[in-house]
Structure formats: structure tokens, C-alpha cells
Design a binder for these strands. Structure first.
Length: 495
RNA sequence: GGCGCGUUCGUCUAGUGGCUUAGGACGCCGCCCUCUCAAGGCGGAGAUCACGGGUUCAAAUCCCGUACGCGCUACCA
């Protein structure tokens, strides 16, 4: 039987007007079971933007109730990646706060107490069914076309039955008893959403080992931490009625819900390793910029009212509102992200770029003892790279001792041999070697040999860099220096 | 299987009943610049607004249905 309890569960919708109040409290609640996923990063970013836009609080809560998969190593890396993104939090496991502790593993007693309260109130019950028994029953239900619900085996156990289970060594879990009624709530992105309790199974809130499960811990903490808006991924939409049920049973008011769309891979399935890099750390290691990642990720399912896309953190904070969140999932388009990062590469202050790029050059094994030289190399290739690792790779032409030709047929022609020979001849007495000098020599070669344009420049580019297309040669030779330039041309002649 | 959510150019999106011959960005193509390739500037192609019904003088925008996609259905989060 369904009892319409709509009014009881209805969440008062909060308009953007009231969001300007100071008591906006949002949280990012990751579990430290791996490196930060870009989807989670986007959730963190949106929470942070919302909090900063409203002058509210951004809280970091670590959900490590899965003891098997959570590690302190990942916990540290998580914080590190969030900081790298430029996010900061007002309360969290590392900075403390009035609503701590902020690590769920430090709150286990709280969950046990609340579970006992629900037990005493009759909102929960001990269940001795094994995982195997439950699985068997749910498969049967599916085969019959029914929704997979707990069948109530342990609702009314006698003392005798309990004794029997205990003597078998069974440890009970605590399940929440889902009432047979409608659960309705207002999602700021999606509007009113209604679930029927009859379609929700009695779910475990406390494991046999006494540790709370996600839905329970999250529901308890969100109210205890006075969270005003839960901004999280759409994959939690179906968890929401369970959490509301818990809030309600505990006599708490539910926060506002904001379910943001998922980020998908190119084939529209959930973004995973298969699609390439899906961790913040991977982009970080390739030399993408945090401000570019934040910019790009915030534009997945959100847009500025101005229509602009290149947005600083400052502008994102100023312009971000929940109203402009879209409902549909977005594909992570690496090509567009590359473009955006490339834009940052070319627009961030050059000194900052070089400081960030130098470690990447080092990693390539280049000799960067001459910093001025390294900077010039970076400047020479900056328009041809989208991220620092690519930039470093492109700098190889300045540090290699030998040129590997992409295509050597170009250099075997009569005219190529002629212009190369002329080059060696012209540089015999040169001491002052700059790009201008090279240009002059090229002009002279052209006059003497009659070779010009592509036929003149292409062989030189191939001889000096090994590439058919690429940099402005005067720049290249200046950085290469006279000796190396001559040496490379000599090698080209011998090819 | 059940329940929930979603669906505008290849991709990210604007659009909240007439301002829309559906706008912008990435990518693609062309032109300019130029020794080449980038970068930059300019321009172009690209969407019967998933499909089918309604409501309305008028619908991408409101309602219903269908299809497809995604999520949840764990003693994961």
C-alpha cells in the first residue's frame, strides 16, 4: 500500500536569492580509493565555485568507510590534486573545523549510535541473511520480473532463531526498513523527482563488522555537518530517496539536492581508462595547467551567461550559478581541452611558463644548465604545443647531437648539395652568428645558386631539424649555434 | 527485469512559446600572413532541435507516448 507522504518529505526549494545567504555549506566527499577522477574533480570544482560565489563554506569530507579499498596514500594524493587544481576548503580532515572529524573512519561510533537509535525506533532491524542468500533471492525476483526487494525474512525473528544464527557464527547487519510510501524531493537541476518506497529494498546501513555503509554515513554526516546543498554526480540520484528516508527517520531536514550530469567517454559510456587519461594526476604529469582543467571541466554542463569560454577562476567564481547547470551528460573532448590548454600556454605570463616547463625539459634529459638558452628554446616552440610535455618533446631539436631525418630524399638532390656546399663556404669566416646572419647567408646562397623558396628552405630545415615542417629557421640556427649548424649541414651533405 | 534520469551541428553548448532562415566554441575546409608547419586574423560547410502524436494563432521550448542512451538496483562510493 502506498501512502502519499509527499508533504512530509517535500524539500523546500531554495532559490538563487536565498543562496546568497552566508550559511551556504557544500561538501566534496571523495573516497580515497584511487587518484582523483576528472569526473570527481568536476564535482569538487562545481561545489567550490558555488561556495565561493555565495560566500559560503566548502567542506572536504573523506568517505573511507570501505576499509578494503581506501588507503592513506590515496588520501594524501587526493588532497594534493585538489590543491593543485587551486581549490581550498574551509573545513576538512587536514584543517579541522567545528563539525569534525572529517574522515568517516574517525566517525564510526557516531554511525553506530545512530544505527542503534534507528533500531530502537523500529526504523531498522538486524538481519542475519547471508550475502549468498540475498543474491539468490534477487536473481529469482529478476527472473520473475519483479523489483529486487528484501523479502523480510528477518523482520520478526524469535529469540530462538537469533540464538541459532549466532551459534552458526552469523553476524547480523543492520538494515533500514524502507516504508511503503512515496518519497518526493526537489532537485535544483531536475525539478521534482518521485520514488516509490515499494521499489526500494531494505538496505544495509551497518555492516556485520559494525562499519556504516555509504548511504547511511553520508546521510548522517550531511545533516550533522549542516550541509545546505548536496552537489554531486547524477549517479547518486537513485541513492537520494534512501538518504532522505534516513534524514527523516532521524528527525532531520534534508539538504537541497543538486545532481549534476555525468562525464562520458567518446563512446558515451562512463569515462574510464579505456578512453585514455581519466585522472587529474595524468594531466598534471603531462603538463596541463590547473586553471585550464578547471576552466574546461566547469564548462562541461555549465556555461557562462556571457557565452565566453576562456574564463579565469575569478570569473568562474563571479559567474557561476546553479541555474545555468544543464541536465544532460557531456563527453570529455580531449581535442577541445588540448586547444584550451594551448591557449593558456600561449597566454600565461612567459616567465611562469618557463618555470613550469623547465622540469619537463629536465625529464627529457636535456642539458638545461644555460637557463637563458632553455627559455629561448621554449619560446621558439610555444605556438606548436598544447601542454608542457609536448613542448619539451618539441624542444628536442635544440638539444640533439645528431639529426634523425624524417625524410632524407630531399637532401640528395643536386640543388640541395649545391646550397649546402655554398652554406659551408659562406660560413667559413663567420664569427657573429645570429638569425639575421643566417638570413643574409640564405639570400647570398639564393643569388649564387638560383635556388629559392621552398627548394632552398626545405632542405635546410630537414638538415637542421630533421623535420619537413616546423620552426622559423633563423630562430633555429641561432639557438643551434654556428658549430652545430655547420656540423648538421656537413652530415646532410654526406647523406 | 524493476525504478529513476536524459536526448539541439561529429563534440561542448546558447536557447525557458513569437527576437531563430536555431547563435557561439572545439574540430574540419578555404583565404590572408608566410620558406614550410603552427600561432593569429577572416570566411565556409555542418543540427528536418531523437521519433510520433497532441495543446496553441504560433513549439527546440508545454503535455502524452515510443525509441535509444545512462544511472541505481552491493555488507562500493
Amino acid at each position: 500500500m502506498k501512502v502519499n507522504n509527499f508533504l512530509r518529505f517535500k524539500i523546500k526549494p531554495m532559490s538563487e536569492l536565498s543562496q546568497n545567504h552566508i550559511n551556504i555549506r557544500v561538501r566534496f566527499a571523495p573516497s580515497p580509493t584511487g587518484y582523483l577522477h576528472v569526473g570527481n574533480a568536476r564535482t569538487a570544482i562545481l561545489n567550490w565555485l558555488f561556495a565561493r560565489h555565495c560566500g559560503g563554506s566548502f567542506i572536504l569530507r573523506v568517505e573511507d568507510t570501505d576499509m578494503d579499498r581506501s588507503t592513506t596514500e590515496y588520501y594524501k594524493e587526493l588532497l594534493d590534486d585538489l590543491k593543485w587544481l587551486g581549490l581550498d576548503w574551509d573545513e576538512g580532515p587536514d584543517v579541522g573545523g567545528d563539525f569534525g572529524p572529517y574522515k568517516q573512519s574517525d566517525r564510526l561510533q557516531i554511525y553506530q549510535d545512530y544505527a542503534n537509535k534507528l533500531l530502537a525506533q523500529g526504523n531498522a532491524f538486524k538481519c542475519y541473511c547471508t550475502a549468498e542468500e540475498i543474491k539468490e533471492k534477487s536473481e529469482l525476483a529478476i527472473s520473475k520480473g519483479e523489483s529486487v526487494n528484501y523479502d523480510g525474512t528477518c523482520y520478526q525473528l524469535s529469540q530462538e532463531q537469533i540464538r541459532q544464527f549466532e551459534s552458526q557464527g552469523r553476524k547480523p547487519v543492520i538494515r533500514f526498513r524502507v516504508p511503503s510510501e512515496e518519497i518526493s524531493f526537489s532537485d535544483i537541476v531536475r525539478g521534482t523527482i518521485t520514488f516509490d518506497g515499494d521499489n526500494i529494498s531494505d538496505f544495509v546501513i551497518l555492516r556485520a563488522v559494525g562499519i556504516a555503509t555509504y548511504n547511511f554515513a553520508a546521510a548522517v554526516d550531511d545533516t550533522l555537518m549542516s550541509i545546505s546543498h548536496i552537489v554531486r554526480g547524477e549517479d547518486h540520484l537513485s541513492n537520494t530517496p534512501k538518504q532522505i528516508l534516513i534524514h527523516n527517520a532521524l528527525g532531520h531536514t534534508s539538504p537541497n539536492f543538486v545532481h549534476i550530469p555525468m562525464i562520458l567517454g567518446s563512446d558515451r559510456s562512463k569515462l574510464s581508462k579505456r578512453h585514455g587519461d581519466n585522472q587529474v594526476r595524468q594531466y598534471r604529469e603531462k603538463g596541463y595547467f590547473p586553471e585550464a582543467l578547471v576552466n574546461f571541466l566547469s564548462l562541461l554542463s555549465w556555461s557562462s551567461p556571457t557565452g565566453d569560454e576562456l574564463l579565469s577562476m575569478k570569473r568562474l567564481v563571479e559567474e557561476f550559478t546553479l541555474e545555468r547547470l544543464s541536465k544532460s551528460a557531456a563527453i570529455f573532448d580531449l581535442e577541445k581541452f588540448n586547444w584550451m590548454n594551448g591557449w593558456y600556454l600561449r597566454n600565461i605570463e612567459f616567465d611562469k611558463i618557463t618555470n613550469m616547463a623547465i622540469p619537463f625539459l629536465e625529464k627529457e634529459g636535456y642539458d638545461i644548465s644555460d637557463e637563458t638558452f632553455a627559455k629561448k628554446c621554449i619560446g621558439a616552440v610555444i605556438t606548436r604545443a598544447d601542454y608542457l610535455q609536448e613542448l619539451a618533446t618539441r624542444c628536442s631539436i635544440f638539444f640533439q647531437d645528431e639529426v634523425m631525418f624524417e625524410n632524407d630524399t630531399l637532401m640528395k638532390s643536386e640543388s640541395s648539395k649545391k646550397i649546402f656546399a655554398e652554406f659551408l663556404n659562406e660560413t667559413k669566416n663567420i664569427t657573429d652568428w645570429r638569425g639575421e646572419t643566417f638570413k643574409q647567408i640564405m639570400k647570398t646562397i639564393q643569388q649564387k645558386t638560383g635556388v629559392k623558396g621552398k627548394d632552398l628552405w626545405m632542405p635546410f630545415r630537414m638538415a637542421l631539424t630533421g623535420l619537413e615542417h616546423g620552426l622559423e629557421l633563423p630562430n633555429v640556427v641561432e639557438l643551434l649555434g654556428l658549430e652545430k649548424s655547420k656540423q648538421f649541414i656537413q652530415k646532410a651533405i654526406n647523406t
